[in-house]
Design a protein around this nucleic acid. Structure first.
Lengths: 228, 228
DNA sequence: CGCTGCGTTGAGCTTCTTCAACGATCGTGG
DNA sequence: CCACGATCGTTGAAGAAGCTCAACGCAGCG
């Protein structure tokens, strides 16, 4: 069955028995969202969580004035909004598909049931939440203690480590979205890209960034150097 | 045994059998830290986690220039640095005792062992981590989308909800620490307290804050109003 | 009694945002 | 196939928020 195959590719479910995957497949809802479509809103009751199968989604907060702060951008295989399952609360943020996306929705009760029976699932879940916590801690640190150029430099280095071609990387989201992820606005981000290029740190061609001076970028990232 | 009694008071361990508490008591290390003493540093190997028994500790990040961002302030009964246990990583932040504190250190392996055997412990842990995630998401939102007066107003309202006397609250940490928790510096915090007092929102007498205009404070918190 | 840590206040400056305008790109419909 | 609009990215000028540096009062404690 096709659904099982997708479930088996989700790291969170690694180590589950076939029977348990079957159980999941029985209770999940297969959903599709178009680009820009909202998956849930902040305050919606968290009666379950999601696994992204294909596409790309963002989790974000909104201010009164409509400014957005992205918390996560998720790709295929990643679960999202799991925390709401355990806290029993409503979703603490918004979720929207950045491109056409397919997601599985797993209702809370069935999942809670399964997790008490499967220690490996519980361990996977805790490992996943630990990673999130660590990532959030890093974001808080960045937002509070570092300036935008430093945050951007860190992110570029992070991206380059993720991707194969060491010194040439692809932004996987639009620059406007990247600005929101960095905790700033497109104008500011654009100016910083311009400065980084002018100073020979990078070469920016649309969504492709070439790293010219990696050491310099690393110095920027830790805050040892300031962008002039 | 005195240690068991303390363990039983920790919400995380609620639902554990006596035998399991005994096991924990066998493997934990009872430690004491004086005011200002470091419990662990960022990058230290996370070979276990802690439960705070008495006292008060902070978890924080440091910038190169020495500025500090507090992530948590914990009181008795709260576990900390659990995430390191599951991610298997080193600690992603610093921990320091704000006052003389007693903590239990629980080594990783023993705890991992116990958690696979006890679904209720796993559920408690996941609930706890969910709360942390939600709190962090709120902090990120605040830091990125709100100004300091708004953050402070939120915090004051939060504190007043925690404490008994509705319109008079006690700051449980120093103002310098509060500044670090709000993601700012003491000077800025001080000016904002002064403005809030001048505008009749609060009356500030050392660590005691009287809320004069709660509605106004709530408007500040959501960002509907700006502090002049 | 002096010292140290904490909080406050002032002045100047940096960073970032806001507001505005404009160019480029892309998809769509005529 | 072209024209159009919408979205996205860029750039400029001005303003606001918060930080740095410096000085000082005050309280607590040795």
């Amino acid at each position: 069955m096709e659904i099982i195959k997708h479930l088996a590719n989700v790291p969170l479910f690694k180590g589950l028995a076939q029977k348990q995957l079957d159980e999941l497949a029985m209770v999940l809802t297969d959903q599709e969202f178009g680009r820009g479509q909202e998956i849930f809103a902040e305050g919606d009751p968290g009666v379950g969580f999601y696994v992204l199968i294909t596409g790309q989604i963002k989790i974000y907060k909104l201010s009164l004035e409509g400014r957005e702060q992205i918390l996560h951008v998720f790709g295929p295989g990643e679960p999202f909004a799991e925390a709401a399952v355990f806290s029993g609360d409503s979703f603490p943020a918004y979720a929207m598909a950045l491109v056409k996306s397919r997601v599985f929705f797993l209702p809370r009760d069935a999942f809670m049931d399964l997790i008490t029976k499967s220690p490996s699932l519980a361990m996977n879940m805790m490992a996943s939440m630990s990673m999130r916590l660590k990532k959030f801690a890093g974001m808080i640190e960045s937002l509070s203690l570092k300036e935008v150029p430093s945050r951007l430099a860190s992110h570029l280095i992070f991206l380059s480590a993720q991707q194969d071609d060491a010194d040439q990387l692809q932004l996987n989201i639009s620059k406007a979205q990247l600005a929101s992820l960095m905790g700033t606005i497109p104008e500011t981000l654009s100016r910083i890209f311009a400065k980084m290029s002018k100073n020979g740190y990078i070469k920016s061609e649309g969504a492709t960034i070439k790293i010219i001076n990696r050491e310099g970028l690393e110095d920027l990232a830790v805050g040892e150097v300031r962008l002039v």
